[in-house]
Every structure is written in structure tokens, then in C-alpha cells.
Amino acid sequence: MSIKHHLTESLLMGYAAGTLPEAFNLVVASHVSMCDSCRAAVESYETLGGALLDDTSSEMAPDGLASCLARLDGGGDEVIVPPRPAAPGTLPAPLRDYVGGDLEAIRWRPVGGGVKQAILPTSASASARLLFIPAGAAVPDHGHRGMELTMVLQGAFADETDRFGRGDVEVADEELEHMPVAEPGEDCICLAATDAPLRFRSWLPRLAQPFLKI
């Protein structure tokens, strides 16, 4: 595994702190599933969170412990889900939970030029979608109003900045205008999350934008 493009420290910290939008959490959880160095970073930011707890004390109600003890023997309605180990396939486990399976379970919708997408159900603070870009095809040239995270799951794409292969994440913001092109040979599948609509340069994709929901 040779991941070259990692998450930023602020995304890793935000994930550990629990302050990212759900769609970004999904990208982080997917990348961390494949990347030990970012996993180590998340776990150390969680350690930092544990250390911060030392300084937050606020007195509990006098009967707090008693009412808590009273609940311990009941079964409770909370379902304890054991952690899921990795399963063979293309999609990492957190993504599979959203798709309902591996690649074959994705419900693609064509968006033109052979490109397909599948929008994933997340909270509205940011949106997440899977993108299918045929080998050699391009995503229209666009800029960003907010932050866009694109993680490669299969194949590879290249843009003005670099080449991105499986596991790599491109973090784009207002300053980047780019036209990602899938490498020839293998169709490219990506997970993309953004906290603001994209800004296309040509008029055609802009017309199609409300329809694409991007």
C-alpha cells in the first residue's frame, strides 16, 4: 500500500474532537481504515481529548451515582455493536455501511459524459457522493466555494496538482481550480465530500448543477 496524499492535521483533529460534518467524517473514517499513519494521528488526538478532560470538572447532582447504579443491572435498550474487522473488497467498512454492500451495491445515476454518481445519505452540513469516472474521462473544470475532499477507491486520477491513487485524498479549497482526469486503463471510483456547492467554469455544467446536486 503506497498512500501518498494524506488528511490534513486539522481534519484528523476535527475527527477526533467530533466536530466535523458527517460527510467529512466518512472520508476520514474511510482513509483511516487504509492508512496507519493517519490512524495513529487520530488516536493521539483522542489521547489529547482524554487529557483535556482533566480540566473540565463540573459537580454532579447529589443522587447522580445512585441513579446511575440503579441502571447498571437493567439490560438497557442500547445495542452494543462490536467493532467490525476489515472484509475483503474495494470499499472500506465505514463506506460499506452507507452503501449497503461493496461496489455491486452502489446505485449509480448517470450525470453525462459517462460519469456516474451516487449520493450518500448524510446530514446536510456537507454532502458525500461516490463518483464513477470512466478510464480516460474528465470531471468538468471547476473551482470550490468551500472545502472538497476526494478520496480514490479504485483506479487513479490526475489534475493540475498531482496524481492520486487508491487511498489518496485530495483536499481542495477556494484557491484550487482543477480538472481531474481518470487515468487510462481502469475506471476511477472516488468518494467526494464538500461543504459547499462546486463552481463550474463553463456554462454547461452550471446549467446541469441543480440537477447534479453538487
Partner: peptide
């Protein structure tokens, strides 16, 4: 936020 939190694969 009443949303789920995606967790990484367990090792």
C-alpha cells in the same frame, strides 16, 4: 446533531 458517526475498520 442526531447523526451517526462513521468509525474506521477495526484492526
Amino acid at each position: 446533531r442526531r447523526e451517526r458517526r462513521p468509525e474506521p475498520e477495526d484492526l
